[in-house]
Amino acid sequence: MINETLSVTVDRVEKVATDVVSLVLTRPDGAHFPAWQPGSHIDVHIDEGLTRQYSLCSSPSDLSHLRIAVLKVPDSRGGSIAVHERVSEGQRLIISTPRNNFPLTDSRKYLFLAGGIGITPIVPMLEWAESHGRDWRLFYGARDAGRMAFAEQLEQRYGTGRVTLVPEDSHGRVDLESVLGLPRAHMLVYACGPSGMLRAVEDLCMGWPPGVLKTERFVATELGPGSTDQPFEVELARTGTTVTVPADTTILEAVEAVGVRVLSSCRHGLCGTCETGVLAGMPEHRDAVLTDEDREAGQVMMICCSRAAAGCDRLTLDL
């Protein structure tokens, strides 16, 4: 599947928290957007050569519009600053169709953990969990109440029994030790937020059943230039074949599609089962398994989620 683009109109620009604007996007012809699932994101083509990914925080059951919320990150390459300063109502933008790297797997119970702007992919997940009668809780933290986009609406809609807001200036940080201290059966943990928070969550979830934690990192801000998903080639050293990995396909999916068997389990960079040797080329690691030393060394990668680094259009793998 080619990375399909859509031309959209910025229908509404709204400040929803300190340094956070929400954009409501519609299609110029009034048509509906393609169906999408909670956890999905879109690429927004901001300027020539500048693309950023933003999670959708509207409702998947209302396809008349899409909504994203963008945090102004002062030290970024200017993607978010451009959105804040230059995008105005009525303007046209090019976006990709929704893609999902953070899908919500069906489970009996959920624990949602959001840090700051990390609330965005969680918002549609809450709606799904609620409408499907699942048992769930949300813990949502940020530096102060003014920085918590959608906080009041979520609390009003779902109640304080479900939604716990933790502004750091008045309540301290979310007490992850206590929130994650007692693993529950048939509960999945979805976490999105800054890397410090995710590392703490990953550490605590080591006491939970393997694979219960699903995380999304702020890929665009952490990886810097050229971090959008680009197609690249993978050379399989043992099989002697070369496979093209399209932008919306993982290496694992691409090699499986040509009949190469790879042992895999969680397929989200959490379990380490699909670890594969890298013989040439530079990977961009997106898993939660490898240590910093491993990443630096670049000799292995988790092919279920990691890709070729920017500027590297070919990886040679020990497959």
């Binding site: 550490d203 080591m206 006491g207 379990c271 380490g272 240590t291």
Partner: peptide, 22 residues
């Protein structure tokens, strides 16, 4: 069972994981 199990499991997973086994 948790929570007794939880800290022990965390300790063990911190020691035995894909990186240390590699």
């Amino acid at each position: 069972d948790p929570p007794t199990h939880t800290v022990m499991r965390r300790a063990l997973t911190g020691v035995i994981n894909p990186s240390s086994v590699r």
